[in-house]
Each structure stands twice: as C-alpha cells, then as structure tokens.
C-alpha cells in the first residue's frame, strides 16, 4: 500500500515501529499484523514512532485499543511518540492521552521502558 508504511527496528531490546503515511480503515490491518506478530513472539515492549504519520482515523486508533490490555497484562506497554499536532489532536479528542503513554520524543519512551 503506497500511502502507508511500517518498519520495525530494535533499540535496547525494545521494538520500535516506525509508521508513516495515512492510517485509516484500509491501512490499519498492516499495523495490526505487525503488532500482533510482535506480541505473538512475546515482544511486548513496543514503541510506535509516529514521526512520519500524516493522518490517522479512528480505525487506526482502534488497533491500539485492541492490543493495549493484552500487552500491559503481559507486563509490557505500547508507547506512542513523535506525533504531529494534527495526529495528536485526534488522539486527544478521544481522550487517549490519559490512557496511553504518549511522548514527544522516542528517547523519552525508551527511558520510560528502561526505568
């Protein structure tokens, strides 16, 4: 899918998903597959870096809603970082900042995991 991209890297035993483009009901399954695959491998300390993300619809937020309980129940977390203002505004409208660990920068999320 040309308007959404996802790649995974490892930093200090933390899996970092770099997502870019537009996350909507059409592209959400790609994020879901990546998250599910990590969780299946017991990789539960996950950062989703949204630096390249231009757009998100509620179908994209739904993916995070579906897995956060499982991941936290296993002792991990999904932390979100580097959102642009527009993307953050959508999370904010739905009250996500009180429920998810959202950081301005990836390094803050890494520190959060390492503490």
């Amino acid at each position: 899918m040309k308007n959404f991209g996802i790649s995974i890297r490892e930093v200090d035993n933390i899996r970092v998903l770099d997502i870019s483009g537009e996350l909507d009901a059409h592209t959400a399954s790609q994020l879901e597959n990546s998250l599910k695959s990590l969780i299946d491998q017991n990789e539960i300390c996950i950062i989703v870096n949204c630096k390249g993300l231009d757009y998100i619809a509620s179908a994209g937020l739904g993916v995070f809603m579906a897995y956060i309980e499982d991941v936290r129940g296993m002792g991990g977390d999904i932390k979100l970082t580097n959102m642009n203002e527009r993307v953050y505004n959508v999370f904010d409208l739905l009250g996500f900042p009180t429920l998810y660990d959202i950081h301005d920068d990836e390094s803050e999320a890494l520190t959060g995991f390492n503490n």
């Binding site: 509620s58 179908a59 739904g62 809603m65 499982d70 739905l94 009250g95 996500f96 429920l99």
Partner: peptide, 19 residues
C-alpha cells in the same frame, strides 16, 4: 463511547460518530 471501558473489553470502533 467510553474509551476506557472499550479498551478493557478489547473493543474497537464506535468512535466515528462521536468524532
């Protein structure tokens, strides 16, 4: 939608109309 409750129940959706 009560997002906290939906997360607890691993539900998604129901947010579009609200948005």
């Amino acid at each position: 939608p009560d997002i906290r409750e939906r997360i607890k129940n691993k539900q998604r959706g129901g947010m579009g109309v609200y948005l």
